[in-house]
Amino acid sequence: MIVVDVMSGVLLGAGALFALSGGAGLLRFPDFYTRIHAAGVTDTAGAGLILLGLMLQVSSWETGVRLLIILLFLAMTSPTAAHVLAHAARRDGVPVWREGDERR
């Protein structure tokens, strides 16, 4: 059982780190499009690892299934939302940041 606890702890810790990194990237990256990539890190690696870590600690199958549903749902909706946002911004003429530009 201790092995499972350690594995769960590692997954949770790594997920929390990815979540924090994405948050920092959201502030640090220079423009809207690059920030979407940072937000993507929290939504995929962060969310996935945290939910997997929780799955190792479940006491009943219902809880596990709910966690799996949340994971699958986030994995389906987050790229869709990101694509729709990026597409709308592009249509609106939000310029792409190039190397050497001012940050916006």
């Binding site: 990539h37 993507g40 790229p79 869709t80």
Partner: peptide
């Protein structure tokens, strides 16, 4: 297209019949 967006570092901007426009870090 969803997989491209799901992978951090690449982002699909536009999808038409034969290609996907990708923004990449």
């Amino acid at each position: 297209a969803n997989s491209i967006t799901l992978t951090p570092g690449t982002l699909s901007l536009d999808v038409d019949d034969d290609r996907i426009l990708v923004h990449s870090l």
